[in-house]
């Protein structure tokens, strides 16, 4: 509770908490929150403006925009958390392995990280999805690959700093097994900065997924994704601004919320900055 109060102390933190809570609530309680079925088409009601029946209006097939945005938050957060979980786990495993392995293995893993990070994230994700095909599963897998080095590098650097610490040396001298040292001493000590990084990467993953879906390479219809909604909104912009406006707004709130949360989290966890706060 104290931790949350610390985050909420700054205006940015308060906004971040509200925005993230809103998006998470929408995603978790989508069937309860959405006023209509997200995929129910009603062409007669196409491109309506906001009304009591449709608070955000309707899209080009007469589907309720608010309901699709709510269900879109499930896709956005679902993909973001899946990608972050996969890439965090794989990245930390590889990073720690690199730091604690002989130089040749370290060089090989770092080399792989360099290859992946030499391409801009969105370009690499685009290329991989274009090759392996669109769809929810492929998007998660391909974007995860792109993000593994983010976590791998931090995990490696943190582990290298810890490797020669006296408490680790003591464990080695006492004959502790390698996996025990990693699980009980290394990971708990490096996970703080990695969580901050994860929080700051969530909006990036949301944006990449939306970008892929906007280009028709992400989530396939009829599943609602903010990128799909934005693309439809762009196509029919001259007939109604509501689809583009509402999906753009949802993307903005979510990405801003998670970015600010990450920053506030970093400041809160940093003892020097915390003192200043």
């Amino acid at each position: 509770m104290r931790f949350i109060l610390d985050i909420a102390r700054s205006p940015g933190g308060t906004f971040a908490l509200v925005a993230v809570a809103l998006v998470c609530l929408a995603a978790l309680a989508a069937p309860l929150v959405a006023p209509h079925a997200p995929n129910a088409i009603a062409p007669v009601d196409r491109l309506l403006g906001p009304s009591l029946e449709h608070l955000f209006g309707t899209d080009h097939l007469g589907r309720d925009l608010l309901s699709r945005l709510v269900y879109g938050s499930r896709v956005a957060l679902g993909i973001a958390f899946s990608v972050i979980s996969i890439s965090l786990t794989a990245g930390v495993a590889l990073g720690v392995t690199a730091a604690l392995s002989p130089r040749a293995v370290d060089l090989l893993i770092v080399g792989l990280f360099d290859v992946v990070t030499s391409f801009p994230s969105i370009v690499l994700a685009l290329a991989l999805v274009a090759v392996f095909g669109p769809g929810l599963g492929n998007v998660v897998l391909m974007v995860s690959i792109v993000f593994i080095p983010h976590f791998g590098r931090v995990a490696r650097a943190q582990t290298l700093a810890l490797r020669n610490s006296t408490f680790i040396e003591a464990e080695v001298v006492l004959g502790a097994e390698r996996w025990r040292i990693i699980l009980h001493h290394v990971i708990p000590n490096i996970i703080g900065p990695i969580f901050v990084l994860a929080c700051m990467d969530i909006p990036v993953v949301i944006t990449i997924e939306a970008g892929l879906s906007f280009l028709g390479l992400g989530v396939r219809p009829p599943l609602a994704s903010w990128g799909n909604l934005l693309n439809d909104g762009y196509t029919y912009l001259d007939q109604s601004i509501w689809p583009a406006l509402s999906s753009g707004l949802a993307l903005m709130v979510a990405t801003l919320g998670f970015s600010l949360l990450g920053e506030t989290l970093r400041d809160t966890l940093d003892p020097k900055l915390r003192k200043a706060l």
Binding site: N39, I41, L61
Partner: peptide, 28 residues
């Protein structure tokens, strides 16, 4: 063919056929 109009047609067909249990994957 991947155009906005044909995607819209495909989604209506997808919704229509779902009502009789036919599940469609759209390949654009």
């Amino acid at each position: 063919e991947a155009t906005a109009r044909y995607e819209a047609i495909a989604q209506i067909i997808q919704a229509n056929l779902a009502e009789v249990g036919i599940e469609i994957e759209i390949e654009a």
